[in-house]
C-alpha cells in the first residue's frame, strides 16, 4: 500500500494479497516447456484497478506468464489471484473467480457465428449485451456472420467483447493491438482505457505509445525473470527501454 504500487516481492506473506490492494500477486513462478526453463522465478504484483503493463522482448515469457497464471500451463510457485492461491487449479475455476482472458491471437471460434461466440462466453444469469453492443456496435450488426470471416480488428472486438459480457474484476489482455490497422488500434485503446477505469488489467503490449497512454505501472521481463518493476514514467529512461525492450527512441 505504501510507496510505489509495484514493490519488491513480498517476504513470505500468508496474508491475502487481495486485502493488501493487490489483484494479482505472483511469486517465484517457474515454468518449463519441452525441457526449456522458460520462466525462472518470476515475481511481480498487480495493484487493484488500472492498467499494469507486462513488457519485454519477444520470447522472454510474457505470454507464458499469462497462460501459467490462468492454469493453461503447468507452473510452480505462488499465484495469488483475487485472494486465492490458484496454482494447480483447473483453468475454468480460475476464470470463474472473475478473470477475463483476451489471448494473443484473439482465438475467436472461426466456425461459430459472432452471436454464438458471445453466447458461449455468457457466464452469469444476466449477460450485459447492451454494454457490449454499445462499445462495439459492429458485433451487433454482424451477429450472424461466421467469426472466421471477420477482419482482424473485428475479431479483436469480439475477443474483448465476450469477456465484457460478465463482470470481470481482472482482465489479462495479450497484445491487443498486434497487427491491427490504426483505426482499430485507437478504438481498442480507448475501450481498454475505459475498462481500466473500473477493472484491473494486466496488459501485454509491444507498442510503447499504447503502454504510456494506458498503463500506470509496468513490469519488464527479461530472460525469464522480472528485470524491472515500477511506474510507467520509468519508460522515460532511454537506457532502460533500449536495454530491456530492444527498441530505440521511445519518446
Amino acid at each position: 500500500m505504501n510507496g510505489s504500487p509495484v514493490s519488491a516481492p513480498p517476504a513470505g506473506g500468508t496474508a491475502s494479497a487481495h486485502r493488501a490492494g493487490l489483484a494479482l500477486d505472483v511469486a517465484d513462478l517457474h515454468v518449463t516447456i519441452a525441457g526449456s526453463h522458460v520462466l525462472q522465478g518470476v515475481s511481480f504484483q498487480v495493484p487493484s484497478g488500472g492498467v499494469t503493463a507486462l513488457l519485454g522482448r519477444n520470447g522472454v515469457g510474457k505470454t507464458t506468464t499469462l497462460r501459467s497464471v490462468l492454469g493453461l500451463l503447468a507452473a510452480t510457485g505462488r499465484v495469488d489471484l483475487l485472494g486465492h492461491d490458484v496454482v494447480g487449479w483447473p483453468t475454468h475455476r480460475i476464470i470463474r473467480l472473475g478473470v477475463g482472458y483476451v489471448p494473443e491471437d484473439r482465438d475467436v471460434f472461426a466456425g461459430l457465428t459472432v452471436r454464438e461466440n458471445l453466447r458461449l462466453a455468457e457466464a452469469g444469469s444476466r449477460p450485459r449485451y447492451d454494454d457490449v453492443y454499445r462499445l462495439f456496435p459492429e458485433l451487433h450488426e454482424r451477429g450472424r456472420q461466421l467469426a472466421g470471416t471477420l477482419s482482424g480488428g473485428q475479431q479483436q472486438m469480439l475477443a474483448i467483447g465476450r469477456v465484457l459480457l460478465n463482470p470481470r474484476p481482472i482482465l489479462l489482455v495479450d497484445e491487443p493491438t498486434k497487427g491491427l490497422s490504426p483505426k482499430y488500434v485507437s478504438e481498442v485503446v480507448s475501450v481498454l482505457e475505459r475498462i481500466g477505469g473500473e477493472a484491473t488489467i494486466l496488459l501485454v503490449e509491444q507498442n510503447v505509445h499504447v503502454v504510456r497512454r494506458l498503463a500506470r505501472t509496468i513490469v519488464v521481463l527479461d530472460q525469464g525473470r522480472v528485470a524491472h518493476a515500477g511506474a510507467v514514467e520509468d519508460l522515460a529512461d532511454e537506457d532502460l527501454v533500449r536495454r530491456l525492450l530492444g527498441v530505440a527512441g521511445a519518446s
Binding site: L70, L72, P90, T91, H92, I95, D107, F109, L112, A123
Partner: peptide, 15 residues
Amino acid sequence: RAGVENREMVQALGI
C-alpha cells in the same frame, strides 16, 4: 463445436 475447434479457449472462457 467450440471445443473441437479450440479446447483450451473454451476453458479460458470459464467452461
